[in-house]
Design a binder for these strands. Structure first.
Length: 431
RNA sequence: UCCUCGAUAGCUCAGCGGUAGAGCAUCCGGCUGUUAACCGGAGGGUCGUAGGUUCGAAUCCUACUCGGGGAGCCA
């Protein structure tokens, strides 16, 4: 049998016989000629079976293949402009691995509910494959960037004794005789790690038991959380914009075919890399009020506000220095204006909302201690976090980047659920 | 939790008071360059569940169940 190659590498084998191992994506037949579109995860190729050119057995066998049947096909690679992808295989042999039963996902349109119930099969279509490829490259770009800048990856726990913040809802579970919760952020643990390693990051799943039911929410999502000792608010923002710029450039460079499959307007993405516009919370409120929004200083932004603000720019927009009272207890107040904190949210363009949230953290023991009182935080579970401010406390900052929201934006997805292989959403735990 | 929309064949939908329909998928037949191929034929449905109105309900009403979109909150 001819050597096995990937469909994605067929252009290197023009004129020679090869074998591909994959699944039948689609078949068209004209009585004496079969067109088999075979995919293998690396690409899609049309295989031509001409009745007069093969044995009767091979011709009959290829006619038996149903959508998504698995097969090994050998043949001669030929360049052909008529074929999608530019290359074709003149079939010389075919081995049926398994004949697929009637495949639920046809080449016609399907509803969301049906597709989500068949997510395990839906993943096979070119669009979903493209998204998974981009997801992998986004992750690779993140790791490349951070690893090349002296960051050390540290893995925080998934099971935690309590919330890292006091507002959001948590998934509760049993930890022998204690209550435990699935993590919703590794940040506080990363602050501890940063005091050991300087610059660290975590990458892992987060769980939020919020009854959020929008196209921007998942119950289980993945987050990158860098934390950096001796880094202040301004440097924090510079690192964030460099990271996001790098990710976009990497995807543009490595996922050209995937972005084309997704129909993404790459011109818009090409405008992203660089330094990002910044707007103070104060200015954002003023701008919103001037543009007809009913909002006051001290209110948090809703999705329509974020979309309107970010819609003014081609690049992600930083909104910085939010009111202290609407932000997390651990954020460092602006020394000149303690009513605001040294934080920023990064809002993606095109209405994708917040993809990064970060801040400089409180380094002062007394101030953090006061915050514990104000927020009625349990001292027994958080004693260790206060400890960090007693033994060589330093200014430090960090941020969290939501992986799926970033992917949804880069891919131009209508809904975040397509950005992860098996989304956990409100009311959906299957498959 | 609230607002809003929906549930009819395997899938996508039409039918909106008078015997349940189409396209695709499946099966059979035809076609040597198809591009969501096409042409002919066949099989396939307790119209989400439970009540109610009516001579008669997929259709009107009520409740429930399950989903979609959005809000709040967040990455």
């Amino acid at each position: 049998m001819a050597p096995v190659v990937n469909i994605g590498q067929l252009h290197q084998h023009v004129g020679s016989s090869v074998t591909i191992e994959g699944w039948l994506y689609n078949k068209r037949s004209s009585g004496k000629i079969h067109f088999l579109q075979v995919r293998d995860g690396t690409g899609l190729v049309q295989c031509v079976v001409v009745k007069s050119a093969v044995t009767p057995e091979i011709f009959e066998r290829s006619g038996l293949l149903t959508q998504e049947s698995s097969c090994r096909v050998s043949g001669l690679v030929r360049q052909d402009d008529r074929a999608p992808g530019g290359y074709e295989l003149d079939v010389e042999g075919i081995e049926i691995v398994q004949i697929a039963q009637e495949y639920p996902i046809t080449h016609k349109e399907h509803g969301v509910d049906f597709l989500m119930d068949h997510r395990h099969l839906w993943l096979r279509v070119p669009r979903q494959r493209a998204i998974m490829r981009v997801r992998a490259e986004v992750q690779r770009a993140i790791f490349d960037f951070l690893d090349n800048r002296g960051f050390t990856r540290v893995d925080p726990p998934i099971l935690t004794p309590s919330s890292c913040e006091d507002t959001t809802e948590l998934f509760q579970t049993k930890y022998f005789d204690e209550e435990a919760y699935l993590t919703q952020s590794g940040q506080m643990y990363m602050e501890a790690a940063a005091m050991s390693l300087g610059r660290v990051y975590s990458f892992g799943p987060c769980f939020r038991a919020e009854k959020s039911k929008t196209r921007r929410h998942l119950i289980e999502f993945w987050m990158v959380e860098p934390e950096m000792a001796y880094v202040d608010h301004d440097e924090n923002l510079r690192i964030q914009e460099q990271l996001v710029s790098h990710v976009v450039e990497h995807v543009l460079h490595h996922c050209e075919a995937e972005l084309h499959t997704l129909g993404r307007d790459v011109e818009k993405l090409a405008k992203v890399p660089g330094s990002f516009p910044r707007m103070s919370y104060d200015d954002a409120i003023a701008w919103l009020r001037k543009n007809g929004f009913d909002i006051e200083w001290g209110d948090d932004f809703g999705a329509p506000h974020e979309t309107a603000l970010a819609g003014q720019y081609d690049q992600p927009l930083f909104i910085e220095r939010y009111p202290t009272k609407i932000k997390a207890f651990y954020m460092q107040p602006d020394p000149l204006r303690p009513e605001v904190v040294l934080c920023a949210d990064m809002l993606a363009p095109e209405g994708y909302g917040e993809i990064v949230g970060g801040s400089q953290r409180i380094a002062d023991y007394e101030l953090l201690n006061t915050r514990f009182d104000e927020h009625h935080l349990p001292r027994d579970t958080y004693a260790w976090y206060l400890d960090l401010r007693r033994y060589g406390s330093v200014p430090h900052s960090g941020f969290g980047l939501g992986l799926e929201r970033t992917i949804a934006w880069i891919c131009g997805l209508e809904h975040i659920r397509e950005a992860i292989a098996f989304p956990r959403t409100l009311y959906r735990l299957y498959p």
